[in-house]
Design a protein around this nucleic acid. Structure first.
Length: 130
DNA sequence: TTTCTTACA
DNA sequence: TGTAAGCA
């Protein structure tokens, strides 16, 4: 199992993704209805999001913040599929470093407000190092 | 407590 | 999009 496979692993509940992306549960479910993401489901029908899902959600957030509508977001993803250059463009708007920074910020904010977004002990991997 | 679906504003 | 109801 390589890194790419691990990015597809169903790991987070919607509450965690909400804090990670800053999107509401309503929005996240709405984007799923529009096939922008396809999170896995547990036997109990609960959505399980992967890092790949979270990344797509962050791209959606970025485009929405830039003023795009659903149609625009769908076009962006469609463009990413047909042209590899578009993927680079998307990464340019949302580089790996930015994704990491964003995740770190969201995680720290989430911890500042409520408790750990993780039910377990994973939050220790994101301890502030300043 | 959290998430889920459905439905209304 | 937010929110409420009724479940799991």
């Amino acid at each position: 199992m390589d890194l790419n496979d691990r990015r597809q692993l169903p790991l987070f509940a919607i509450g965690t993704v909400q804090k990670l992306t800053g999107l509401s549960a309503r929005q996240i479910r709405y984007y799923e209805e529009h096939d922008l993401i396809q999170p896995a489901r547990t036997s109990g029908k609960q959505r399980q999001f992967s890092f790949a899902d979270v990344e797509r959600l962050m791209m959606i957030r970025t485009w929405l913040d830039e003023g795009h509508n659903m149609a625009g977001v769908k076009r962006n993803f469609a463009e990413m599929e047909r042209r590899p250059a578009a993927k680079q463009m998307a990464k340019n708007e949302l580089s790996d470093a930015e994704v990491y920074k964003w995740l770190e910020r969201e995680l720290l904010d989430a911890r500042a407000q409520t408790e750990s977004i993780f039910q377990g002990d994973l939050s220790r991997f994101y301890r502030k190092k300043h």
